[in-house]
């Protein structure tokens, strides 16, 4: 019995070792976003609270904590409170299978990539539930947009994952990284890399695909009725999902924890640092896109998903499979 308790305590410690840095990086990401967009727009960004404004996210969190939680009269209370919890929960549980370095993973399960795909396809529930339970027309419109958008882009994400899996021959995330020792997958699969990244933007409801929260048309979309901590949880969930998608991009296409060249100065740096650097680079592109691109119109968004990405990624799956079969490189 004591043995079980000890193992349990060690596992909880490991989980905290993932979750706590993750939440800190979510906080830092909001700061990073404001700084980057500030720099792009020739402003300073937050620079008052703490050195270089570094404590700004914590000040924001404190402010949100002290606000009043408001539940609208017509709202469905249970579902209304469940939605932000679910959003945050889903963006945290996905980290269980992410390998941060060689063997540095909480659960090295055989179907890791499927698990990630399953969890990211559930993200839509938090949004639909929030939109419906708020009993408000803007929230509902935002939720409907989001549901249609996420379901559409998941299909092409699925095809991109299949292409990578064809090249690896395993669903295990560590195997996917190790298969990129010679060449990172973004070189042979460059178009799929682009499709994956754009779909990740759509999947996380980020600009230019942030129609579910398009403030110029539907106020703030699905979370318009939320305040205080329940609002903050949506916020945390969205940013954690962004970090997750960037982490997935670096695992699937940028070689995860592997150094760019396996020679002296590069392989002295630990894999964790490489993984963090690659993820941060992807996150920077997320923010760069937000500051650069105008929002898509809704029908254009649907056209891009169904009429451009879907046929193209399907074609590329067939092409990859054909090339692998013809050359005999297919993993067995």
């Amino acid at each position: 019995m004591g043995n079980i308790l000890l193992t349990g305590a060690i596992e909880i410690g490991k989980i905290l070792l993932v979750i706590v840095p993750l939440l800190v990086s979510v906080a830092m990401l909001t700061y990073f976003e404001r700084k980057v967009i500030g720099a792009i727009q020739l402003r300073k960004g937050p620079n008052v609270v703490g050195p270089f404004g570094l404590l700004q996210p914590f000040a924001d969190a404190l402010k949100l904590l002290t606000k009043e939680t408001i539940v609208p009269t017509g709202a469905n209370r249970v579902v209304f409170m469940m939605a932000p919890v679910l959003t945050l929960l889903l963006s945290l549980v996905a980290w269980a299978v992410i390998p941060f370095g060689y063997g540095m993973v909480l659960a090295d399960i055989n179907v890791g990539i499927l698990y990630l795909f399953a969890i990211s396809s559930l993200g839509v529930y938090g949004i639909i539930m929030a939109g419906w339970a708020s009993n408000s027309k803007y929230a509902f419109l935002g939720a409907l947009r989001s549901a249609a958008q996420m379901v559409s882009y998941e299909v092409s994400i699925g095809f991109v994952i299949i292409t990578v899996l064809l090249c690896v021959g395993s669903l295990n995330l560590s195997d996917i990284v190790m298969a990129q020792r010679n060449v990172w997958f973004f070189i042979p699969l460059f178009p799929m890399f682009i499709i994956f990244f754009v779909s990740a933007l759509a999947e996380t409801n980020r600009s230019p695909f942030d129609l579910p929260e398009g403030e110029s048309e539907i106020v703030a979309g699905y979370f318009v009725e939320y305040s205080s901590m329940s609002f903050a949880m949506f916020f945390l969930g969205e940013y954690a999902a962004m970090i997750l998608m960037s982490g997935m991009t670096s695992i699937l296409f940028l070689g995860g924890w592997l150094p760019p060249f396996d020679i002296a100065p590069f392989n002295w740096i630990p894999g964790l640092v490489w993984f963090a650097l690659k993820t941060a680079a992807c996150l920077f592109v997320f923010l760069w896109v937000r500051a650069t691109m105008p929002r898509y119109r809704y029908d254009q968004l649907m056209r891009l998903g169904w009429k451009v990405f879907l046929p193209f990624s399907l074609l590329w799956v067939v092409l990859t499979a054909g090339v692998l079969m013809a050359t005999g490189w297919i993993a067995r």
Partner: peptide, 14 residues
């Protein structure tokens, strides 16, 4: 989870 929860049930809910 992917097929039923991620796709079919979303359409139901919709």
């Amino acid at each position: 989870v992917v097929v039923y929860v991620g796709a079919v049930a979303v359409l139901f809910l919709f």
